[in-house]
Design a protein around this nucleic acid. Structure first.
Lengths: 231, 231
DNA sequence: ACAAAAGTGTTGCACGTACACCCATGT
DNA sequence: ACATGGGTGTACGTGCAACACTTTTGT
């Protein structure tokens, strides 16, 4: 595309904060960088946006190239543009988040060699992250938490069949506080989009819990109005 | 700043959606562009971010240069990055909003000649805006509306002394629906940050209403917790 | 006196919160 | 039998929504 605009040595990138839930723990997707700067560091998956792709498209492509995951619904949540956030020049990054179901099947495997590996890492104890990735993560986490308070988005993170206790544990992990079991169940069931299955948990050494499935159709019917107001 | 990054012909800009309230109408700040493309068009105040300034700083500087206003608290709300949003090249824009009090004193006067004029314009009937400014405005408006539902941010827009009816009219303008007078007053007064003055409205041909002042100290005490959770 | 807006209370409902015990299952 | 989590109901307080008439003031 031809440009009549002043040429600036500026670069856009996207960074992704992808949340998952595994072993009763909230996790995010990280990569091991294989390029300078910060070669060898754990970092958020992120890379430079191409000239002829929208930022949304770029976010999806980049996530795929670095982790092998694709087709997930990501949402932009903030843009970080401090002058010195990247040691090699001016890089403004648009941050996205997504909530996904961690699936034993799906393989995490970078398809470029910019990343050496991709894996789930508990949000507790992330350790030191490069650039301003710590801040990006925290901002994204805060947004998710706030959003959960007016929209039950947690189902995105759970396996197809789950128990109410698992759901509650997840809420507690995101909100970082204990919830009352009776109140929690009452509220979740009152929404009407949880379908009780004729099936129970297996392999536990105590009373097995009922399994539920999330009924996306009913959910959409209930929350379409709210979503349409959402920005 | 030296860069080792690939050079791309990419440009960042910021655009501002500044809300004000005047003559019982919700307005936003627009400029008349004095440069191509869209020379002569009404547009959101926006311009290109410099190499060595953060986006937040740039937003403040640019708003000042185009309108003469400065020192207001702007908040980033979304980044727009479609490939073809600017006819002359790839320009990604970070959008900000702010709510301010329209003050008879303050002069709206561009200090660069990129803008020919700056003025308040009703949000109803904005007419055709260049680029994707229509979409930027709508997104910002939606964010403000959502935010008003959990935080009484409307005071930023009112003069120092105001009546409860004015406050209600403003709420109705933002939310785009009628509110119940009794419920509205009860709720606003219950917050405790409205200070009743020993003064009444003047120059009206009907019963004069009491004037109130917004007590920012009490407001902060009440809402600091919510704000700290905010992203 | 009339027009125009100011000002004022009550009731019902929905929702959140606090709180404690018995049940089913595997070992 | 025991340990472990599964599962259940009530009572109270808060906040929101619905609703209509009297009061004050300027002309």
């Amino acid at each position: 595309m031809e440009t009549l605009l002043p040429k600036l040595d500026s670069v856009f990138s996207t960074d992704c904060v992808i949340f998952g839930f595994q072993a009763n723990e909230l996790k995010i997707l990280l990569i091991d960088r294989n390029e300078e700067p910060y070669k060898g560091w754990r970092a958020l998956p992120g890379y430079i946006v191409g000239q002829d792709e929208s930022i949304d498209d770029a976010a999806e492509r980049i996530l795929y190239e670095l982790t092998g995951l694709r087709g997930l619904h990501m949402e932009q949540f903030h843009t970080f543009g401090d002058v010195d956030r990247h040691p090699q020049g001016r890089v403004i990054t648009v941050a996205y988040y997504a909530l996904i179901r961690i699936d034993g099947q799906q393989e995490l495997k970078p398809v470029t060699n910019f990343a050496r590996a991709a894996y789930w890492h508990p949000v507790k104890d992330l350790g030191k992250l490069p650039f301003d990735h710590q801040k990006i993560f925290e901002t994204g986490f805060r947004k998710i938490r706030r959003r959960l308070s007016y929209q039950p988005i947690a189902f995105e993170l759970l396996p197809e069949k789950f128990t109410l206790t698992q759901l509650q544990t997840l809420y507690e992990a995101i909100l970082n506080r204990k919830l009352d079991k009776r109140n929690f169940r009452k509220k979740m069931l009152s929404y009407g989009f949880l379908k009780e299955l004729d099936e129970k948990q297996k392999g536990v050494s105590y009373r097995a819990a009922k399994l539920y499935r999330f009924d996306r159709r009913k959910y959409n019917k209930i929350f379409q109005n709210d979503l349409s107001v959402e920005g």
